[in-house]
């Protein structure tokens, strides 16, 4: 007995499957393949096994800037983990307290920057921090910190952290909203029981609410990780593909762009770009793997 082919299922699935397979899944697989090829000067591609990777990781012309970009990207991520996510937790905790007047208004305002284009945010902060305009100097003088002012975006030591903070300023709304949603989902009875027992608000927060939202904190972490190791727009629109001053703001996204399209006298190469993309893929895959195999499993046990 053979069942007839369920045509309606095929029709429902075909458009999504086709577009997703052709323009997302296949390019990714093909990129992994291309990473094993090199491009000759005539433009023909031939199989070269690990030549690209050897060059990127061990040839000092490329590897120094690769590891520089990787290190910067790690720092970029750490700033988000140490400032953006704790700040998001703080704001969410305050918003979720009972009887905070205007909580809806605060939510609306605090979430607004996440909706704006990174390009626009980049330019706005660039103008504000610009010594030419002097707005930040005026403000710092007004609060008595005139000596603090420096051209933060122009100095090698501070540029990357300044850009990271701009990104934190823009995206803090996302962890805030996700954590807020998790906090208000905690059943009231649990909290009330603790209040009756005489636990302080501080203690309730750390020993009851935070453990209950650990899965959300794990999710926020992995979203931050994937977003940061895939970032490009902000650095490109403020600093250009060269990620200056002297590559101090270079991250994997801008490095990928330069390897692919070239810069100055260095010609771009699709195959070398593919190799960089493969390395980024491995980094992201490692992060996602750690999340699923360790964090997620352990956290699920906690939440039951």
């Amino acid at each position: 007995m053979k069942k007839p082919l369920p045509w309606h299922i095929v029709v429902f699935l075909a458009p999504a499957l086709l577009i997703y397979a052709v323009f997302s899944a296949w390019p990714l697989i093909d990129t992994l393949r291309l990473g094993f090829y090199t491009t000759s000067e005539t433009g023909s591609q031939h199989f070269a096994w690990l030549a690209n990777y050897q060059m990127l990781l061990f040839d000092s012309d490329w590897s120094e800037s690769f590891w520089n970009a990787m290190g910067n990207n790690v720092r970029f991520f750490l700033v988000h983990m140490l400032i953006q996510n704790p700040l998001g937790l703080l704001l969410a905790a305050l918003l979720s307290m009972r009887g905070v007047r205007g909580a809806k208004v605060y939510q609306t305002v605090l979430f607004l920057p996440t909706l704006l284009s990174v390009v626009i945010i980049g330019f706005i902060w660039q103008l504000i921090l610009s010594p030419l305009w002097g707005v930040s100097e005026t403000i710092l003088t007004a609060i008595g910190l005139a000596d603090w002012f420096q051209p933060w975006l122009g100095q090698e030591e501070t540029a990357l952290y300044t850009l990271s903070m701009m990104s934190v300023w823009q995206f803090v709304g996302i962890p805030m909203m996700l954590i807020y949603a998790a906090l208000i989902a905690i059943p009231d009875e649990i909290i009330e029981a603790a209040v009756v027992e005489g636990a302080s608000a501080w203690r309730i927060f750390w020993t009851i609410r935070v453990p209950l939202i650990l899965p959300t904190l794990g999710l926020v972490t992995i979203l931050t990780f994937v977003g940061n190791f895939n970032a490009f727009d902000l650095i490109y629109s403020v600093k250009g593909a060269m990620a200056g001053p002297s590559y101090s703001t270079d991250i994997l996204g801008t490095y990928f762009y330069r390897a692919f399209f070239g810069y100055q006298s260095q010609l771009g190469s699709a195959t070398l770009g593919a190799a960089v993309a493969t390395l980024m893929f491995l980094v992201i895959l490692a992060g996602v793997g750690v999340y699923f195999f360790f964090v997620q499993r352990k956290l699920q046990r906690f939440s039951f």
Partner: peptide, 29 residues
Amino acid sequence: FRGSRWLLAFFAFGIMVPIRLGTVSILQI
């Protein structure tokens, strides 16, 4: 139907892995 779980996993992969990583091939296509 057979394979529906695999298809779901196949799509789920696209949530975690950014499509940008396939840019080189997308441009070629």
